[in-house]
Structures are given as C-alpha cells and as structure tokens.
Amino acid sequence: MASRRGRGSSGGALVRIWPFAWLVVFFALPCLLVLRISLSEVATAQPPYRPVIDWSAGLDGVLAAAAELSLDNFRLLLDDGLYWQSALSSVRLAATATLLLLVVGYPMAHAAARLAKRWREIVVILIVLPFWTSFLIRVYAWIGILKPEGLLNTALLKVGIIAAPLEILNTETAILIGLVYSYLPFMVLPLYATLEKLDGTLIEAAQDLGATPTKAFWAVTVPLSWPGIVAGTLLCFIPMVGEFVIPDLLGGSETLMIGRTLWSEFFGNRDWPLASAVAVVLLVLLVGPIVVFRELEARRSAPGAGGRTGGS
C-alpha cells in the first residue's frame, strides 16, 4: 500500500520547491537557451549573437527575436564534413572505449566480488580512491608516461622490445588509454554492485546440474549481472562522447571529438551560436542513451518509491 499520508503534504511542497526551482532556473532554462541561441546568427557584439531578445519590448520583442531565428547553423553543420566527422569519431571512440572498459572492468569486478569480505572492502576502496583525486591530474600524468621520451618508451627501449620510440601520445590510442583509465571506476562499481549481490549457490546449482564453470559463467553470472553491464555502459558511454579534457590533452590535433569541437568554436572562434548548435547535436546524439538510463533508474528505484506497506 502506498505511503499516502495526509500530514507532511504542505511541508513536502516547501521541501521540494527549493531544489526543484534551482534546477529549473539553472539547468532546464539554460538548456532551452542553448537551443534558442543555436538558431541565432553570430555577431561581433557583446553578447556575440543576434537576435537578442529585447525583454523591455515585451511580447513584441520576443516575437521580433523569434522571427529572426534561422536554421543556418545546423545547415552549416550538415554541409561541413568536419562536424560530421567529429560527431562520428566521438561515438566511435566512446563505443570502443566502452567495450575495452567491459573487457578490463568485468574481470576486476568479478574477482573483487568473490574475495573474502574483508579484502573485498579494501579492494573496492582502492578502486574508488583514484576517483577522489583530480581527474585533470590523472590525465596529465599519462602525458609523462606516453610521450616519445616518456617512461613507457624509455622502459621498452631499455628492455629492447622496440628499436625506436612509439608514437602513442597525440594518437587515438592515447585517447583510448585515457578514457579507459579515467572511467574504469564508473564501469567496475556498477558491475561489482550486481556481482556482489549474486547468490553464490546459483553457480553451485548450475555446476551441480552439470554445467562447466565456463558454461555456468555465461549462462548464469553474465545474464544476472546484465543490469550492472547496462548501468556501467551508459555511465561511461554518455559522458565519454562529450569528453573534452582527455582528447585535448592526449589526442593529436587531428583527432576530433565533438566536445573539443564545441570548445574550440566557443573559445577559439567565439562563434556562440555555432557552439550551441554543436551542443544541440551532441544532446540529440545522447537523448537515446539518456532515456534508456532514466528508464532503468526509474525501474530500479520503483520498489523503494512505492512506499512501505502499512496495513497488515
């Protein structure tokens, strides 16, 4: 039975109005603003776009501004191959990195979940710990390792595996390393959460019924950890598509990612309307996965939201 309580409804309104109002003003509204400005023209003025809504002219000002809106920026995005490429390569790199993350993260989560309880806690803390140190710093650290005269090349040369330094920094490989490195906790934790809850006797039951350990893994463990796989994938994939710092620091100038394109349109070319249009395109790219994520979250939290049963 739903927790429907008469009292608290007025208090409830007071409680929820502040965060709600904050998010409407500082998140929903700005997102709409991005959409509107993506339909404006660039101008050499402050702010550098036209038309500007003239609020003092009331409804007329709004209508006048609306009449001048145009799809030119989106036409430009479509015509110029550069933007297409950056959108596509963002998705491609994010997808590749997600796959790599699953390959690296799943065995880690699986191994951590099967440790003795005491060790399990410590390992999980160790996995989360780097997340608390600066993201920028951790990405920066890779420059020192990957650059031609960096640690990795020096070590490989010394051992004699390679004859000449590898070009890793400023390539897609470097970006992938950076992505996998930075997002690893976000993949391991949701996987660990589902694997840890997995009832060990299910595996024993599968083996008792004649499945080999490998078969039991694919037939029982993997399907049951599906929610973790989905959550980890979305949690990593979505922000990686719009990633800026990693491609900017580790990728070469020829590697395009959409977040970086937006940044350079905005800060480099000061073309705010075009940057906004890129943001809209990026959002559209991500709407699908975000909706899926929301649905899953809603389903996951549904039993809790339903309230406890009161009347026996």
Partner: peptide, 15 residues
C-alpha cells in the same frame, strides 16, 4: 549526472 560538461558549462554561460 550524465550530461557532458561542455553542454552544462555552455548552457549556464548563456544564461
């Protein structure tokens, strides 16, 4: 939580 930071930053700046 999942929105790329570039969008959040740009949107707030425009506001």
């Amino acid at each position: 939580l999942v929105m790329p930071e570039v969008i959040v930053g740009l949107a707030l700046l425009l506001l």
